[in-house]
Amino acid sequence: MIDNNHVIPQTKIRVENFNLFYGKFQALDKITIDIPSNQITAIIGPSGCGKSTFIRSFNRMNELIPSVRTEGKIILDSKDIFEIDPVELRKQVGMVFQRPNPFPKTIFENIAFGPRAHGIRDHRILEEIVEKSLRQAALWDEVKDTLNKSGLALSGGQQQRLCIARALAVEPEVILMDEPASALDPIATLKIEELIEQLKEKYTIVIVTHNMQQAARASDFTLFFNMAESRAGYLVESGKTTDIFTNPKNELTEQYISGRFG
């Protein structure tokens, strides 16, 4: 077999014995995993296994829910994210959501919103950021003449790329994607996957997906989560995507990815 990854990638995010509770209910159970830098890590698993909850821990979005409590560590580079101010953390760890959620603003304002919130006022610099972000998100050619149109006027796939551009505009290091293509048609989905592949050069990407083929196509590493009888999510198996999808070690992974359960 041909193996292109001779170099073991560096760890970007280290998760150690991470537990998460909604009130008394334990949603994540002792997750320990290293997320490699500048790679695409896909998280798959049946509904309710805590995949989304898990990546929402990386930018502490879970904390918007009042009853959430966590244990264990999540270390970004060398800092524990729970010791970083969430506002600062979210600048470093961007997020793209399941449904495209452009703001009801113009395309330009959608992208300029983040940088502006971080203190950039100079219009010329903002213009540069907007163009650069849109180019990175492979949307520039489609919207360069309509930057003053509403972001909501775009098609679903374009809206999602706009949201990716918006996340890129604040120059994060990690981009979390929570089923970013589940609301899109197949062609738009492939475009997003293509884009993700290009983005990994500069960013560490963690993507949750329901679509096994998507994980197989678009990721370098795969984590398989499952739900225990207590309904707590736990990590079953992790490894190179090529290994997980051709030769998983765990029987549960095997059954899940070959469509026998979940």
């Binding site: 930018n59 979005m61 918007l64 506002v87 600062e88 953390l89 979210r90 600048k91 470093q92 961007g94 997020m95 959501f97 449904r99 959620n101 452009p102 703001f103 009801p104 603003k105 919103f113 983040g114 502006r116 919130a117 971080h118 949201c163 918006r166 996340a167 604040v170």
Partner: peptide, 26 residues
């Protein structure tokens, strides 16, 4: 929509920036 609020906070804006920049205009 909740998604506007999450979208804004995920960009690293403060809650006030979210309210003033996204929620109130919407």
């Amino acid at each position: 929509p909740k998604s506007y609020r999450e979208g804004s906070l995920a960009l690293g804006t403060t809650k006030w920036q979210m309210i003033f920049g996204v929620v109130l205009p919407s």
